[in-house]
Design a protein around this nucleic acid. Structure first.
Lengths: 248, 248
DNA sequence: CGGCACTTTGAGATTATTCAAGATAGGTGG
DNA sequence: CCACCTATCTTGAATAATCTCAAAGTGCCG
């Protein structure tokens, strides 16, 4: 979804549709029925990052907030360093997902975001997005929706307390998110080491390893290093106590 | 900040300033330098809830999202019911804080919000706020900031893993938030039972009780039922591993 | 003065962590 | 191509933390 130079606009729009069809940024335009001119104006402010590799940073904590990012390929992790100098993994970001939304408020990034493998991102300068939102009806509301969605998405994780609950919650969450972007929901390739999974789930690395083995022994998953096949998602779901989805 | 009938507008603005001086909703107008007419337009869409009592709901999960709420007095808790039919406390909401921001995205509330004592809230109909945002420069951006702030606020809690870390983190967070609204940072009155604190921190009620006792034995706090005095906040701070606040 | 909800305390069971050691895969240089 | 090296991952045993179950203490309200 790189910005075009002007000619062959029609082609660009087709390319845009292909690459972005599974991207969260598309929610900024498509569903609100923006017209052709509005989509083009929006597209013009989006650029692509260079290719990043394992360990490269998209941005670091404290950097001034200039853009909203959408993962284009690969996986990222966001983290902060705590008072003891230890890393605290906050989340993982899959293709099509947005990153950096927490930084609008203080104008500076609140966490660092690092590539876990070969990865790239789309960059949407926030000031321009902000200006556009003021002039394109519906865009403003869509941005608010995206932010709100981000808030709601943090709720379910809080519910799981035991190692097995957290682990199955993690696998199911990953599976669902991959599915939403058109990937397999049963064959997952973890792009992060066990250490990062453990850190994210607030468990010891050894515990992650043991829980995965337990799940495998039960016949719920098949583990081959970082490849995980979900065999019995129903069993995994019965582990997590997450929100029942019903109104109360 | 109740809507006036028209006359004595000057008085209303003074009353508005008094009641709302510590309120998060004020960030929607004051800092962006809205002019007098804009503030009045904003004020006109805000109304106050009736008085609520312990156990009353501000809204329930699944309710259509019509408004953003700001706690005016008292305390609220937000929660969901999990698949086992157990309550999961998501958070507590103090005077001046916003509630319901997670519901913009799916148009329905994602959790239930209940009063813990005698409480009331300001109600800002979202459709009208949305319309105003389209016509008042800066308001749109302020709303985004509030949403973004909400996202960042969920990060630090994730870091604490042990019961003592969570408990001191909870006390310090409460102390800070009360301080931000002009209350004492050392003398806290918990308006929620131990059970809710425990649930929120994902601990057993007994563990909460024991950790509080341990803190008291160390001379860090004084506990008298739901009144807690923070004697040595430095000691408490040394317990939590939260984000170091520095750029990386 | 009960009754009731909340809170505290104790003892044993469970769960997860830490420490220590071994296994495995991927990359590197000979 | 193979041996080696290092990261990562797994496994085991002992330790520590938290939970569960059970019971007793406390304050509040009718």
């Amino acid at each position: 979804m790189s910005s075009a130079t002007g000619q062959a606009r029609e082609l660009d729009l087709r390319e845009l549709k292909r690459v972005c069809s599974n991207c969260s940024l598309k929610e900024l335009c498509v569903p609100m029925g923006l017209n052709r001119g509005e989509v083009e104006r929006l597209d013009k402010v989006v650029e692509a990052s260079r290719s990043l590799h394992n360990g490269d940073h998209l941005f670091r904590k404290g950097d001034p907030m200039r853009s909203i990012y959408a993962v284009r390929s690969g996986t990222f992790k966001s983290y902060v360093i705590n008072r003891d100098g230890e890393e605290q993994v906050i989340g993982f970001h899959l293709p099509g997902e947005l990153v950096g939304l927490d930084a609008i408020h203080p104008d500076h990034h609140q966490c660092s975001v690092m590539a876990l493998d070969t990865a790239s991102a789309c960059i949407m300068p926030f000031s321009q997005l902000s200006e556009l939102a003021a002039s394109i009806p519906g865009l403003q509301r869509q941005i608010m929706r995206l932010l709100s969605k981000e808030i709601s998405s943090m709720v379910p994780r809080a519910a799981d307390t035991t190692a097995e609950e957290r682990m199955s919650g993690f696998l199911l969450d990953l599976s669902r998110r991959l599915g939403e972007r058109g990937y397999s929901t049963s064959d997952l390739r973890l792009s992060m080491p066990r250490k990062d999974v453990a850190n994210y789930l607030r468990l010891a690395t050894e515990t992650v390893s043991r829980v995965l083995r337990r799940f495998q022994d039960e016949g719920w998953i098949e583990v081959d290093r970082r490849d995980i096949r979900i065999v019995d998602s129903t069993a995994l779901k019965s582990m997590v106590k997450g929100d029942d989805g019903e109104a109360q």
